[in-house]
């Protein structure tokens, strides 16, 4: 498995690059949202969710599907558990992103310090950040 991880066909590289680039943008934007919302900068938190986290997730998830189709991991029976972990983390994350973005957006429109809406967005974003590191662990260690 280590050798397979080190040596891969060249035509997988672009899909892997897109996947990792999206994941990096996603994690970076999630961290920025956490810091912004913790500092009660609702506008920055909202914009980071809308223009950073969401596009990052789309690129990461699209890249994941692309590399999965090239590696044909979904055709394996049973599907490797690290692939399942990836889907289990990334797919619910979209729901979390939408809820957090709506909460932050409403909080910005109300022009208040945020209260429960800010707290909800902050909690969801923190959970997503932790979940992203679980996904990185699964992708790197590939537990069977």
């Amino acid at each position: 498995m280590t050798v397979l991880g080190v040596i891969r066909p060249d035509d997988w590289n672009i899909a892997l690059f897109v996947h990792i680039l999206g994941a990096m943008a996603l994690v970076g934007a999630l961290a920025m949202v956490v810091v912004a919302l913790a500092e009660r900068d609702l506008r920055l938190g909202y914009r980071s969710l809308l223009f950073g986290v969401l596009p990052g997730w789309i690129v990461m998830r699209g890249g994941a599907e692309w590399i999965a189709s090239k590696e044909k991991v979904n055709d394996l029976d049973p599907t490797p558990s690290w692939v399942d972990v990836g889907y289990s983390v990334s797919d619910p994350m979209l729901v979390f992103i939408i809820i957090a973005t709506v909460c932050a957006g409403v909080a910005v429109r109300r022009q208040k310090r945020g209260g429960a809406l800010r707290g909800t967005a902050l909690a969801l974003t923190s959970i997503m950040l932790l979940a992203a590191f679980v996904a990185v662990w699964a992708m790197a260690t590939k537990p069977t």
Binding site: T2, G5, A23, M24, A25, V27, G28, A29, A31, M32, V35, G52, F133, V136, W137, M139, A140, T141, K142
Partner: peptide, 22 residues
């Protein structure tokens, strides 16, 4: 050993991404 090292290498790379995004 390889996977553990790769995990920490990737985590470090993701920290660089946090800086770049901010």
């Amino acid at each position: 050993m390889y996977h553990g090292l790769l995990f920490f290498h990737l985590i470090a790379a993701f920290l660089l991404a946090v800086t770049i995004v901010m």
